[in-house]
Write a protein that binds this DNA or RNA. Sequence first.
DNA 1: CGGGAAAATTGACTTTTGTCAGCGGCCGTG
DNA 2: CACGGCCGCTGACAAAAGTCAATTTTCCCG
Lengths: 321, 321
Amino acid sequence: MAIRPADQIIHKAAWLYYTHGMRQDQVAQQLNISRASVAMYLRKARETGIVNISTSTQLFTDDVLAREIEDAYGLDAVWIAPHGDLVDQAAEVPVLASSVFLELVKKGDRIGVAWGQTVYAIADVMAYADLQDVTVVQLCGNLGAPFAYRPDQCTMEIARRLNAKGLNFYAPLVLSTEALAEELRNEPVIREQLAGISDCDLALYSIGTVDGESHVVKCGALTSAEMDALRRAGAAGVVAGQIIDAKGALLDCSYNRRCISADLDSLRAISKRLVVVQEPNKFEPLLAGLAGGLCTHLVISADMARRLLDQARAASRRKAS
Amino acid sequence: MAIRPADQIIHKAAWLYYTHGMRQDQVAQQLNISRASVAMYLRKARETGIVNISTSTQLFTDDVLAREIEDAYGLDAVWIAPHGDLVDQAAEVPVLASSVFLELVKKGDRIGVAWGQTVYAIADVMAYADLQDVTVVQLCGNLGAPFAYRPDQCTMEIARRLNAKGLNFYAPLVLSTEALAEELRNEPVIREQLAGISDCDLALYSIGTVDGESHVVKCGALTSAEMDALRRAGAAGVVAGQIIDAKGALLDCSYNRRCISADLDSLRAISKRLVVVQEPNKFEPLLAGLAGGLCTHLVISADMARRLLDQARAASRRKAS
DNA sequence: CGGGAAAATTGACTTTTGTCAGCGGCCGTG
DNA sequence: CACGGCCGCTGACAAAAGTCAATTTTCCCG
């Protein structure tokens, strides 16, 4: 909490340079150090979030397509990463998402974070910030897979970037029997963490696919064959490690009952639910999530936006006829 | 709300430069314009709040003196503008205050703003920001004095800087009879505005002196002689144009009854009350404000901080003996 | 308390950014 | 339709910032 004495000089340099608009040589003179050091301190200030530089994401919400999707799906806000006229579209989604995320966070917030490649990609490009009274909580249990994008890593990395407190979940995501999962959920430590999820101000997650490429399969929570069976039983997407059906409801299956993760109602109790979808093959999972009311704020690519809108129009035509 | 087509390019340039970290020549190439134009757009982006650069104010809260004052007066946070080792101390207070203010504001907030030289000085050095869903409301009636720091100007200037909505108060601050003031307060428009004050998330004000130099005297709301009389009757400070006594309660006097301004209870209902004191002669007024619970967040100079702490210590010694 | 490794700092050089006069297109006006 | 004024853009130069190898300082450890 307290500033380390060594960092004091960084704060001073940043204040004089950015707030007072002094030049680096003036700052150097004022602090009796070389200009090169000032340049270095300023870089550190930016890197650690002592100085925050953020760009409005209005460019990406202010768009007819985005408005139409907001209306069609009843969302609070939609951001669309445009086609390659700027930069690579797919890569743009996490960058945009991390800006949007930082725009939505405010001091004192409690933030729920799920996991997966998309979430980790967002964490990875996220700017550092100085949000010491923010708490980042993990939305579901862990798994031991050697992937950077596993639940605890996602939570930790985001907490680190924000200089926030990270609250990890010390339980496995999935257990071998339903009874054990139930028992564990009733353990005070775990119960408390699960209960705290609905107190979050903001949640961040993506929606997973239900095929062999799904992160739950890659991490070994389910075999590819089991996933195929679940898909035949109506699985449409994955949210915080749990399987949902096309209506966005929790699929009634043993796997879900063996999971320790955020209750969907708890997620819906969070006022800002930021869903980010990067891969083009996540169309159906995303529809499921939208149907289930799991999303209030959405970041997607232009292609995906197009498909969502077409879908909504087709649906309303069907209803009209 | 919508981005003007001409501003689109500014957003794009800012996004590529600040978020993607491209160099100006790369941005220029990407957007098919000259690098000089990019430099110009970037300046505009910074000036209009499309890009936001903010520096942590931790340096000024993270200080034993600040902590001691927090404890002694039960405040949420205190910031202290240090002695001249950095820059001019008095001039630093508004600069620091405007940074603190911007740190405390968040999207969707409703902000109450009073008036006076200090408040206007803060507005004047405030960085531009892009907070379009913020509302800035005037905390008290107006007066026609030809000063830049009058109530409507303070409100408007802050709203302009934030790109927020400004809600002015179209009633005089002080009327000639109590009856008329009472009648006016009951007018739906005015009543509504007064009622809306307690819904604010954040308030910004200074505390005025009760002498001939007071802004209420300079602006002609009171004569110097009337002020002297009020002082003898127990006046200790001015908050949003109203006179308070040493305990921080509204002074029982005709002037106050003729005022159209925020009820002190409404002010206390606002969760963050940022009080900024710049001039050294505002020590007693500040004590009155603190006594009345009108302050939760405080920005002062190092000298003032010293005096506050000495006062608190003297008071506790007196109590102990 | 000396020696050595690691970290911090700096001077000198390179790259990047800021600025401004001047050019050219656009629009309203005579 | 020609003219003048205005605004926005650009090229070229000046100023500022970034970088890195060399040097100094700090901090262990024997």
